[in-house]
């Protein structure tokens, strides 16, 4: 239930930082560093997640802050079709964008009550750790290293590695790339780098910052092939007839990982809400909505709601 704080104006002018005291205390060293890092990495374009909240306790859950603010602030990418991209109308669209809107609908009663902050790979974790965004929904796989620093919900998407090559390279299997004549582009993602070192030690590698950059590098001939999430790969191949998917059977690229929402650790209430919401979407009462979204953006059936036949039990 939405909570309105007496003495505040919901429309905006008298909303204030929930962590701020009336006696304008100086910033601690930690707060200053956090603020500076967030400004440096994510720029000044996004809204301050705290600016619209009311006088909640300093240790208030992000769930309460979001409800009081009456708006969700979500970190996203803009170059990962069909997960999150700029559509021909110049608007953010995609599976992850729709997921964020669905959360806003359930939490705030309106799918439009969400502000997207477009991030790059380097900016996503600082943005969430400094409270610049409420959570990140930007094609982020769960890894052990990351889980030590940020909290993850259960995954919303099974994904994994694929390799896309220029059709004119004449390759069919990813192992054929393991040749110094070929250049292999990948994201600055430790998992991708480790897989390249393991499977393609002889190929030249170039490490770029976002999916659009590795696609462009391959299109202009700087790279022969590139590694990208499975969900994004199919869209790229569909849109670019000069590219093709390589067979990855028998290689480390044939793995499954989970893309999940990530948030600042230590906020159990917020994590519990998002995790419960995600569990219900992927395997519970909202599975039909998940299926609709999945069909819309991936044009195929999602994984089943249960791995067993429910009617037998």
């Amino acid at each position: 239930m939405r909570s309105y704080i007496p003495g505040t104006d919901v429309a905006g002018s008298r909303w204030r930082n929930p962590a701020a005291n009336d006696t304008a205390a100086p910033l601690s060293r930690g707060e200053f560093l956090s603020l500076a890092a967030a400004l440096l990495v994510t720029g000044c374009s996004g809204s301050d997640s705290k600016s619209a909240a009311t006088a909640l306790p300093a240790d208030a859950s992000r769930l309460d802050i979001v409800i009081a603010r009456d708006k969700l602030i979500v970190g996203t990418y803009s170059t990962s079709p069909p997960l999150a991209f700029i559509n021909p109308d110049g608007e953010l669209a995609g599976f992850e964008i729709d997921l964020a809107r669905a959360i806003a609908k359930d939490l705030l009663g309106d799918s439009e009550k969400v502000e997207f902050v477009v991030l790059n790979a380097a900016g996503r974790f600082p943005a969430v750790l400094t409270g610049k965004i409420d959570f990140g929904l930007c094609s982020t796989s769960i890894t052990g290293d990351r889980a030590a620093r940020v909290a993850f919900t259960p995954p919303y998407l099974d994904t994994g590695g694929t390799v896309i090559a220029r059709r004119d390279a004449g390759l069919t299997h990813v192992r054929q790339l393991n040749d110094p004549r070929f250049t292999y582009a990948l994201l600055n993602n430790p998992g991708s780098i480790e897989r390249a070192e393991q499977e393609l030690p002889r190929a030249k590698t170039i490490v770029l910052d976002n999916p659009a950059a590795i696609l462009l590098a391959t299109k202009v001939g700087r790279a022969t092939a590139f590694n990208i999430d499975r969900a994004i790969a199919h869209q790229y191949v569909a849109d670019n007839p000069d590219l093709m998917l390589l067979d990855t059977s028998g290689t480390v690229y044939n793995h499954v990982s989970g893309n999940a929402i990530f948030l600042k650790p230590g906020d159990f209430k917020w994590w519990l809400f998002l995790s419960t919401w995600m569990n219900e979407l992927r395997g519970g009462s909202r599975y039909a909505q998940y299926r609709t979204l999945y069909l819309r953006w991936f044009d195929k059936e999602p994984p089943p709601q249960r791995f067993y036949d429910v009617s037998r039990y």
Binding site: L129, D145, R149, N188, P190
Partner: peptide, 10 residues
Amino acid sequence: IWLEKSGNPF
């Protein structure tokens, strides 16, 4: 790359 690996930006 270390930031990506660790999720520890600061």
